[in-house]
Structures are given as structure tokens and as C-alpha cells.
Amino acid sequence: MTDLNLSHVSKGFGGTLAVEDFCLEAEPGEFIVLVGPSGCGKTTTMRMIAGLEDVTAGTIALGDLDITEVPARDRDVAMVFQNYALYPHMSVLDNIAFSLKMRGVSRDAREHQARDVAELLGISHLLGRKPRELSGGQRQRVALGRAIVRQPKLFLMDEPLSNLDAKLRVAMRAEIVKLQRQLGITTVYVTHDQVEAMTMGHRIVVMKDGVVQQIGTPEQIYDRPANRFVAEFIGTPPMNFASGEWAAEHDELRLWGEPVPLESARAARLRADVASGPIELGFRPEHVHLCSSSSPSTTSAIEVPVHIELIENVGNSRIVETVTPSGGALNAICASDFRGAVGDRLQLRVDVQHLHVFNQQHARVS
């Protein structure tokens, strides 16, 4: 049984579709992340789930209940906003307990529940303070506490970590994941940060221009991106791309003018899916090797001469930016003991097993 079901949901503003034909089935306790660039429709989708935006077409169900036309206040949903939306004149205790007060819960009962939630979040010592006396991370915990105390059917989180510094974001995203796992409440989380998406979600929904590009686990999204946009958007540094072609007259895939050695089964799939002509090939920076021209080649790799343009030291590895003779930029992730220098001329070698092939419509075909 699904916990949340969006069936062919669309949202239009005037003549423009902000979200088009969105379909998703979330299982009970699942952590779903909506990710994409600004303006892709992820927040609009969340606002439709919350009841803050009307649905132009389609239906939204929570469990067995169709909530498409149900007012926001009557949906069993709790939302955590980007700006926390705490009441500045109230104490932490009263902020957490406020929703219970609106439901008519007695003072003793709501304070007891609020204290239990504060204990869960590690902020019991802050209950008497006002929001202005809290750090960003503490305010975030209060906002989470206010959502948790309602014991909702569904959590909605709209970029809740975007106002925190980088170090605190890492700590808080781990806390949210552990908390969600402990509570077992189905969660929909919106972010533009693909690292957050990959590290937090059971499944990821990648969106662009209001359209779902791919839904899958982090592993599926990363290892088998559905199209060029997903391949480029997910991953840091992003996937490398190079122009290639399927030479039908020679029955072979070519990259950098050279035939790519392929297993017969994969060659057969490409032969069936790709017409003769230009295509695009992608490969992750971690699947790239930089070596001297004298290094022995392998039958399962293809290579191109490059020179080093820039080396970024990121501690446990080096991100090496290279340029091909034709001017194409290619990144490689190398070990921390990499000894190359800017200006060095090397061979960039790619294992063909890690090549992704995209057709002229930018869809992944192999």
C-alpha cells in the first residue's frame, strides 16, 4: 500500500505549466527527495501536496484518502519551511507546542509532549529561550520539533537547511535522516543541492522545467541516468561529455575519431537504438585515468592526449581539469598522491565499461 500518491498532477499559472503530469507513489516511511534547479517546479509540487496551491489537473491521495480538494488545515501534514517561521515572542516550548494548542490539547498534555520532543532533538535546555537567542541550527531543531509534535501522516520539508553554514548543514542532514528513520514518517524533502539529495533520499525525483526527468534510488540515478540533464546535474564534479558517432558502415562506436571496443551484446543494443550519425558519450571523473604516453594501453579503454589546466586539492583527492587538443574540457578525480603539474601533457584514459551513450534527443541509450 502506498502512503502518498500523486497521479498525473499538473499546475498551471496563466498559460504556463509550472508542473506537468507529475506521478509518484511513496511507500510508508519512505524518504523522497525532490531535486532540481531553481524554477523546476519542486516547491510548487510540495505546496500542492500541502494544500497551499490548488491542483490544475490530477489527484493527490494520502493513504486511502483523496486530499486533492481538502483544505490545508485538514490534511494530516506537517511542513518545515526554509525560514523556520517561528513565533519571535514565544519561548521554544510554546513554539513547539503551538499546533497542539490550536487543536485544543490541554496545557499539561501539550507541554508534556513538547518536552518529549525537545528531549528527542536534544534541545531540552533551550525550552525557556526565545528564537532570537538561538543559533541557526537550534532554530532548525525547534522548527522540526513543532512538526514532529503533531505526529502527522506526512512530513514536508522545503529546503530546511539552506540558511545554515556548510559544516552545520552536513551535521543537520545526518540528524534529519536519523530522526526520520526513527520516527518512520513518510517524508518529502525539497532541495536544489544534489549532494543533499544523494545522501538523504531513499528515492530521488529529478525535475527540470516542471517535468520529472527520472525517479530512482541514489544508485540508480547516479549509475544509470535517464538522460543528459540528469547525468550532468547529479555528481560533483559533473559528468564529462564528448562528441562521438555511431559509424553504421563500420558497425562501430567512435570517440575522438577512434573505434571504441565494445562487448558484442552492448554493440548490438547500440546498433538497434542509435541511427548512424553524431551522438554524445559521458563518463564520470572518477572513471578517468591520467597516465604518461609510454604507459601500456588496455583493450577495454580508449584514450586522448590532454594537458593539465588546473589542479584542485580537496584533501583526500585531486580534481584535475584537463583540455584536449580540440579544446574540450575533461575532469579527472585522482588520488591525493597525484604528482602532475599544470601544463603537463598526459594521456587521459577511459574504461569503456563506464561510458554512457546519449542519442541526439539526449536520452540515455546505453
Rank of each mutant, 00 (worst) to 15 (best):
residue 250 H to A: 14
residue 247 A to S: 15
residue 235 G to F: 04
residue 205 V to Y: 03
residue 202 H to C: 01
residue 251 D to P: 01
residue 239 M to R: 10
residue 208 K to E: 12
residue 207 M to T: 06
residue 217 T to I: 08
residue 248 A to S: 13
residue 221 I to T: 07
residue 241 F to Q: 05
residue 207 M to E: 05
residue 237 P to A: 00
residue 241 F to N: 03
residue 222 Y to V: 14
residue 216 G to P: 03
residue 241 F to I: 08
residue 239 M to S: 05
residue 251 D to C: 03
residue 204 I to M: 03
residue 215 I to N: 10
residue 234 I to Y: 06
residue 221 I to D: 08
residue 250 H to R: 13
residue 213 Q to T: 05
residue 244 G to H: 13
residue 248 A to M: 05
residue 210 G to P: 08
residue 208 K to H: 13
residue 246 W to P: 07
residue 217 T to V: 03
residue 238 P to G: 11
residue 207 M to H: 04
residue 221 I to S: 07
residue 250 H to Q: 15
residue 215 I to Q: 10
residue 239 M to K: 08
residue 228 R to N: 11
residue 237 P to G: 02
residue 212 V to C: 10
residue 216 G to C: 09
residue 205 V to P: 00
residue 232 E to F: 00
residue 245 E to Q: 14
residue 230 V to I: 10
residue 220 Q to C: 01
residue 242 A to H: 02
residue 217 T to P: 00
residue 220 Q to S: 08
residue 201 G to D: 05
residue 218 P to G: 00
residue 235 G to L: 01
residue 204 I to R: 05
residue 221 I to R: 07
residue 205 V to T: 01
residue 201 G to F: 05
residue 247 A to N: 15
residue 209 D to A: 15
residue 217 T to M: 01
residue 213 Q to C: 12
residue 221 I to F: 02
residue 221 I to N: 09
residue 227 N to Q: 13
residue 252 E to H: 06
residue 242 A to Y: 05
residue 220 Q to N: 04
residue 210 G to T: 06
residue 251 D to Q: 02
residue 228 R to D: 09
residue 217 T to E: 00
residue 230 V to E: 11
residue 209 D to I: 10
residue 221 I to Q: 04
residue 231 A to T: 13
residue 240 N to T: 00
residue 242 A to G: 04
residue 232 E to G: 11
residue 206 V to T: 06
residue 241 F to L: 01
residue 213 Q to R: 05
residue 217 T to S: 08
residue 207 M to S: 07
residue 209 D to M: 13
residue 234 I to A: 05
residue 240 N to D: 00
residue 248 A to F: 12
residue 203 R to H: 11
residue 230 V to Y: 06
residue 246 W to H: 09
residue 215 I to V: 15
residue 233 F to C: 08
residue 215 I to H: 04
residue 220 Q to Y: 00
residue 246 W to D: 02
residue 226 A to W: 07
residue 252 E to S: 09
residue 214 Q to R: 01
residue 251 D to R: 12
residue 252 E to P: 03
residue 214 Q to A: 04
residue 247 A to Y: 13
residue 250 H to N: 10
residue 251 D to V: 08
residue 234 I to M: 13
residue 236 T to E: 06
residue 224 R to A: 14
residue 246 W to C: 09
residue 230 V to G: 04
residue 215 I to L: 12
residue 210 G to M: 12
